[in-house]
Amino acid sequence: MRRLIPLCLMLAALPPAFAHEVHHAVEAQNAVSVRLTFADGQPFAFEAFEVYAAGSDKPHAVGRTDAQGRAVFLSPPSGEVRLRAFAADGHGVDLKFDPPRGGASAAAPAAEDRPAKLMFGAGLLLALFGIFQLFVRRKKTQ
């Protein structure tokens, strides 16, 4: 029995004796939520994301977007963050932004005017070909 007491004390003093316990603490925090969607409005749901603090190549947070396509994380204390989100089929984003801090809300992003952009792009293409047509016509007249 006398031999067992020091052995028990020694075992109790070893750090691995406590290592299997996982404690938890529920805390109210202000998280940043970034909503990711495809162009047709479908949520970029259940995909992997990584968050990096400015100037660091070690992830500050990793996780998966939720069913609504939201990447939710606690931002680092200061500076820009880089958010990378990936789907296995190659869709995803690599964004840099300054997250709202201290309970502030970010301004709602302006709605994307997709039809106007589409028309602008088509117009630009036709204009480029129109200019090229002038060169072709000049060649013919020379």
Binding site: L125, F129, F132, Q133, V136, K139, K140
Partner: peptide, 21 residues
């Protein structure tokens, strides 16, 4: 410039715009 002529350029423009859309 040798390949393209006045008839091909508008067709190519239309088809490129279609592919873009």
């Amino acid at each position: 410039r040798r390949t393209l002529d006045e008839e091909t350029v508008p067709r190519l423009a239309a088809m490129t715009a279609l592919a873009y859309g």
